[in-house]
Amino acid sequence: MAEIAPRQLILTLYGLYARDEHNWMSVSSVVRLMGDLGVDSAGVRSSISRLKRRGVLLAMKAGSAAGYALSESALEVLREGDVRIFDRRRARASEGFLLVVFSIPESEREKRHILRTTLSGMGFGTAAPGVWVAPGHLRDEVARTLERRGLSPYVDLFSARHEGFSSLCRQVAQWWDLDSINAEYGDFLERFSDAESRWKGSDDGTRTAFEIYVPMLTVWRRLPYLDPGLPPDLLPDGWLGGRAADLFGDLDALLRTPAREHAVTTIRA
């Protein structure tokens, strides 16, 4: 089971807590909260520097306290992520598919990598060279993301339906690596299936909730982007996505408030 990178935990902290604290957290509060998650101060400062270089965090002082705020582009990504993570629905067969066809001149070939990374990061599969496919209900989100990243001039979007001749289930299994996605869901279930009992058996409910909730959300927030959200009748037998989503929903309802209490108390101390 892969370790969670400190920078991913920091981004989760900012997404959960900084936005309601005037989009700012002091370095000292981030160090304390990350300490609760088992990350030492050197690792925290190194990860913050990396996020700053990437334009995710902006250095900002509040009085004499040094801290960081999320950049506007990072805030936009997090706002869109809120929908995928907390309010996601599975596609219906009647909605068909969204096709993305792109053509990028050789002089701008670096944009091909950016576009492919963007599409795969939104759950697209590859139907053919230069042709990417996703469930149709993602159209508006995809259009906004491509426009925000300056990629829309290279892309055409099409609504499509599968009319033959091969089995759609067989095609879907070729367009996406569903086995790999299912294994990720299995890892999530293995990692957090005992989270409720760990929390209920703890002596410090708010801190333990925080120690479970932030890593849990950090692991989970990748999954709605890997999983295209296909209709249930196109998913393979033994699909674990439903069980994992139920576990996430249960733990979110159980731990979000006490975890927030611990975080906010630390931030405002």
Rank of each mutant, 00 (worst) to 15 (best):
F165N: 14
P135H: 09
R148W: 06
R191T: 10
D246P: 02
P224Y: 04
G63Y: 13
D177V: 00
A128W: 13
L234I: 09
M122C: 03
L234F: 10
W132I: 00
E76T: 12
L217W: 04
S103A: 12
M122I: 01
Y185C: 02
R144W: 06
D82C: 03
R109P: 02
E190L: 07
D250M: 08
L75I: 06
P232V: 03
K111T: 09
A183D: 14
R161W: 12
Q174S: 12
W24Q: 00
E76Q: 12
L255W: 13
A269T: 13
Y154S: 09
G249T: 13
R112F: 08
R7D: 12
V172A: 15
A160D: 10
E21G: 00
H137A: 02
L78Y: 06
G38V: 02
G43A: 01
F158Q: 07
L70M: 08
L178E: 06
E106K: 08
D194P: 03
A183Q: 14
L240G: 05
G121T: 06
A263Y: 03
W132C: 01
S202N: 11
V30N: 03
P231A: 05
I10N: 11
E110N: 11
N182F: 04
L9A: 00
R191K: 10
E106Y: 14
T265C: 07
A5R: 04
I85M: 09
L70R: 05
G43R: 04
K52W: 09
G67S: 03
G35W: 07
P232L: 12
M122W: 13
Y14C: 01
K111Y: 10
S180R: 15
T118I: 02
I10L: 12
L119S: 11
L234W: 08
R148K: 11
D250I: 07
L33P: 03
P224I: 00
A127F: 15
R191A: 04
R7K: 10
A65P: 03
L16D: 08
M34H: 05
V155I: 10
F86M: 05
L98G: 03
V77Q: 15
D82L: 04
L235K: 04
S29R: 00
R84I: 01
P232S: 14
S166Q: 15
D250R: 15
H137W: 11
G136I: 00
G249W: 08
A69D: 01
D233N: 09
L70P: 00
P224M: 01
F158N: 05
R221K: 05
I4S: 06
T265L: 07
Y213L: 01
L151P: 10
P224W: 06
D179F: 07
W199L: 01
T126H: 10
R256E: 12
L119K: 14
A5D: 14
